[in-house]
Amino acid sequence: MSGKPRLTYINGRGRMEPIRWLLAAAGVEFEENFVETKEQLEKLIKGGDLLFQQVPMVEIDGMKMVQTRAILCYIAGKYNLYGKDLKERALIDMYVEGITDLMQMVMMFPFSPAEAKAKNLASIEEKATKRYFPVFEKILKQHGQDFLVGNRLSWADVQLLEAILAVEEKVPAVLSGFPQLQAFKTKMSNVPTIKKFLQPGSARKPPPDEKYVALVMSIFNLS
């Protein structure tokens, strides 16, 4: 096995995508192992590789890590994207938790029943524009810096850019009332490692389609 982190998940965004984003932002190359059938997942579980019988799993530094939050914390700390002290880390944690709440809605949207999609999309737009994005607009305006915490790139910046782009896929004009976030999006998208990740052919996954939804449903016995 090479020294690169190895990511085990479905070939799609889901709970692995923020991990891909964070590794890419840190300039870390990684390998991917895609779970394509229910039987493959069961084999991993029976083999004892999945501590809580679920993916994502990241093999890094001799560990087989599970639980998205734990994986992200480790990567952020390892690659100096987790602030310089406890206070900065607390701010990053707060910001990430808020972004994660919004992204949970975005992640679950493709699995909405057809009759609920319009309502759920409206809810995503409302929460983004009334609850979450105003927070980050205010933070950036108040401190006048390029990044959210400590005036240097952190996990929170990476996760916020991911969220902005994900919401824009569904609500293209969502940033129309947020000039600070528009500037933030431009600056972050031009960070060299992130710019590379945003190019075609990178490990970034496309928006979930019906094929992806069907695959997830079959592997995890969802109905």
Rank of each mutant, 00 (worst) to 15 (best):
V174G: 02
Y82V: 01
A128S: 07
A183Y: 12
A156K: 03
M105D: 15
F133S: 07
E125T: 08
N80H: 14
P110E: 06
Y79W: 03
D157F: 11
T129Y: 02
P200V: 06
A203F: 12
E125N: 12
L160R: 02
L153S: 06
Q199G: 06
L148T: 05
A116M: 14
M94L: 14
R131S: 14
R89S: 14
S112G: 06
A70C: 12
L148C: 05
L91P: 10
A122V: 03
E162Q: 14
P113N: 07
N190G: 10
A116N: 10
V135T: 08
E168N: 08
D85M: 02
M105V: 11
K141V: 08
G83N: 08
G98C: 08
K127S: 12
E162T: 02
N190W: 05
A156M: 03
W155F: 10
M188N: 14
P200H: 11
M107P: 01
A183C: 06
I124N: 12
K141I: 01
A122D: 15
K84W: 09
A90C: 15
M65C: 03
Q145S: 01
M103Q: 15
G62L: 10
V158P: 08
V174I: 14
F111Y: 14
I124H: 10
S123D: 12
S176K: 15
T186Y: 09
P172D: 08
K141G: 12
S189A: 01
P206F: 10
L81C: 03
K78A: 06
Q67F: 00
V149M: 01
A166I: 08
S123C: 14
D61N: 10
M94V: 12
D146V: 13
P192Y: 10
K117L: 04
L121P: 05
L153T: 03
F178A: 11
M105W: 04
K117I: 12
I71Y: 03
I164S: 04
S112F: 05
N151S: 11
M105N: 04
